[in-house]
């Protein structure tokens, strides 16, 4: 299936998936984080200089109605494996940020064959500490304003006047908040079995982390990398939980360098 640049809808298993496609070359499946597509723009354009970016909107994050039965990350992981098959993709660079990184890891433990490289940026999905350790910042029990302060290193990015946002932007925010809870409320933003299955991912993996991430701090990323058999860990300075937003240039450079190798 040939994909043209731009936004398109592909039906997989009867589910309509919105894809954003841009660039030429090696296919790079980009899985957006829990804030949705909202601020992924600059990073994708930079990545598109070295790869063909295919970026789906996760079910329940977009305007399309998600199947009622979709409530685990596994549901999305299997759907995207079917998407890769339907598009006839191979030698794919699989890149996921935040909850997208969790989806990517769940895909790769199931079937790593289509993927040449894996990039996990500030990914959720595993539990490292003991039962009384809060590994992952509790995102829903702070106000939106306080959450943003924890998400971003550059506090200028917080200066967003809600009253100036369009309805589309407000709906995207509201959907993203609900969708993330749908998939990640309990167990909180992780799958208790995932860490024990990561050994299956022999794919070369870059675990890329915002040095100032306070949602899932860098030590969480180091533990992720340690549980993967073929992973390297890198941080990006002056970036919080969304390095692809705060340091799009660095994020794209590190990712493209890695997938070239």
């Amino acid at each position: 299936m040939v994909l043209a640049d731009g936004n398109t809808t592909v039906e997989v298993n009867g589910i309509a998936l919105d894809l954003s496609v841009r660039g030429r070359g090696k296919p790079l499946l980009f899985l957006h984080p829990e804030i949705g597509f909202d601020r992924a723009g600059p990073a994708l354009d930079l990545l598109a200089k070295g790869a063909q970016i295919i970026a789906p909107t996760h079910p329940a994050y977009g305007a399309a109605k998600a199947p009622d039965t979709f409530n685990t990350i596994d549901d999305i992981a299997y759907l995207y494996l079917d998407l890769v098959e339907k598009l006839g993709l191979s030698n794919v660079a699989l890149v996921g940020a935040g909850i997208g990184g969790w989806i990517a890891a769940e895909m790769a433990i199931k079937d790593r064959a289509p993927f040449s490289h894996l990039v996990l940026a500030d990914a959720f999905g595993i539990k490292n500490g003991g039962r009384e350790d809060r590994d992952i910042f509790d995102m829903w029990f702070v106000t939106d304003a306080d959450l943003a302060k924890v998400q971003y290193f550059d506090q200028k990015l917080l200066e967003r006047d809600i009253s100036k946002l369009s309805d589309d932007e407000l709906y995207a925010m509201a959907r993203a908040r609900e969708a993330t809870s749908r998939y990640g409320w309990k167990p909180y933003m992780h799958h208790p079995k995932l860490k024990g299955r990561l050994h299956r991912i022999k794919t070369p993996t870059l675990v890329l982390w915002g040095a100032e991430d306070r949602i899932v701090p860098p030590e969480y990323g180091r533990a992720y990398a340690a549980a993967l058999p073929n992973a390297t860990f890198e941080t990006i300075d002056r970036a919080g939980h969304f390095p692809h937003v705060e340091r799009a240039d660095e994020f794209a450079r590190a990712t493209l360098n890695f997938i070239k190798g």
Partner: peptide, 23 residues
């Protein structure tokens, strides 16, 4: 406390957008 008043998904997306507009 404010952070606990509106957990995600409890009210509809439409109502959440209305709430955001009403600050």
């Amino acid at each position: 406390p404010a952070p606990f008043r509106n957990p995600p998904g409890y009210i509809s997306i439409d109502d959440n957008v209305r709430l955001m507009k009403a600050a």
